[in-house]
């Protein structure tokens, strides 16, 4: 049994999706941790994959905090150079159409082995593109690895801007980092100031379409990463496929990832499961309510036409 497999535990698959194991991890590279949101897992996997030739392109989102028009508005990119991965590090709390560049990655960039990081809904979109690729010529077999991120909901750009500028009192262009954790929305400024608002105050700005999604942990990913359940600076990682496990095993063996059992840390896996349950119950209720209004159920729109 590998060092990684020794620390892996299993959680409730009803809530987390099918998986081989869960653990807590962080990158051992300073430059990654400095740029990353939490433990730098997504960045580390992408850099390792590109350097080792496991991927020849990764899809991620980049943002320009100094954009004069729309600071912090992300756009999707296809990255082929491992040195450029860290430009995409860090969470962006607004929509970024990562899947929109999927065909471009294969067709224009000529990538044969694509990795993508995405929210649960985006991972689902790519899986469907693999199963029924009506408009996705030559894409299905080019998907090498899908990295999901744990996600409760997302915010439209204007919503995020309102939270940052109106509620936190910080100009978007002065923001150095945003974060959600410990029941709060956090804004760190370039000057070293820290502003927070309770997470409850952000609810009015959530994207409504997120409320029909019952997938918290990107259940169809190869591996999922997120801050929930792990201490500051660490990420909770859910491994689902053998392919992902093999890659993570190599990274641990090469000393690129530091791993721990999630049972040894606080707040632990229980919190991930609790929040997954909360998302599932809340949003299933929303789906039912929408049905009563005569609105279509997600995934069954065609049935009602």
């Amino acid at each position: 049994m590998s060092e990684l497999e020794e620390v892996m535990v299993k959680g409730d698959e009803e809530l987390l999706g099918e998986h081989l194991g869960v653990f807590t991890a962080r990158s051992t590279e300073r430059r990654i941790l400095k740029a990353a949101q939490d433990g730098g897992i997504v960045s580390a996997v992408m850099i390792y994959g590109l350097e080792e030739g496991k991927f020849d392109g990764v899809i991620a989102s980049v943002t320009d905090p100094d954009d004069p028009e729309e600071p912090w508005k992300p756009r999707p990119v296809v990255i082929t150079d491992p040195d450029e991965v860290l430009e995409a590090a860090g969470t962006k709390y607004t929509y970024c159409p990562n899947v929109s560049v999927l065909k471009e990655a294969v067709r224009r960039y000529g990538c044969e082995r694509v990795a993508m990081v995405g929210t649960p809904c985006q991972i689902r979109a790519v899986r469907k593109a693999q199963l029924l690729p009506v408009g996705m010529r030559h894409v299905p077999d080019k998907i090498e690895l899908l990295i999901g991120i744990i996600c409760m909901e997302n915010f439209p750009y204007e919503g995020l801007k309102t939270m940052v500028e109106q509620l936190c009192g910080v100009w978007m262009r002065e923001v150095a980092k945003m974060d959600i954790g410990k029941g709060k929305f956090w804004v760190y400024t370039d000057d070293g100031e820290v502003k927070t608002i309770p997470i409850d105050e952000t609810h009015p700005f959530e994207g409504e379409p997120c409320h029909v999604c019952t997938d918290y942990c990107a259940e169809l990913s190869d591996l999922t990463a997120g801050s929930v359940g792990s201490p500051d600076g660490w990420s909770t990682v859910i491994v689902r496929t053998e392919k992902a496990l093999e890659l993570l095993n190599e990274m641990v063996e090469q000393g690129l990832l530091e791993v721990k059992s999630i049972e040894e840390v606080k707040p632990g896996l229980g919190l991930v499961e609790k929040l997954a349950q909360a998302k599932k119950s809340k949003n299933q209720k929303e789906i039912e309510e929408r049905k009563e209004l005569g609105l279509p159920e997600p995934g069954k729109v065609h049935e009602q036409l």
Partner: peptide, 15 residues
């Protein structure tokens, strides 16, 4: 119908 979460699949699929 308030269901689009902006993943971009449609844009990729459009020929």
């Amino acid at each position: 119908k308030n269901m689009c979460m902006g993943c971009g699949t449609c844009a990729a699929a459009c020929p």
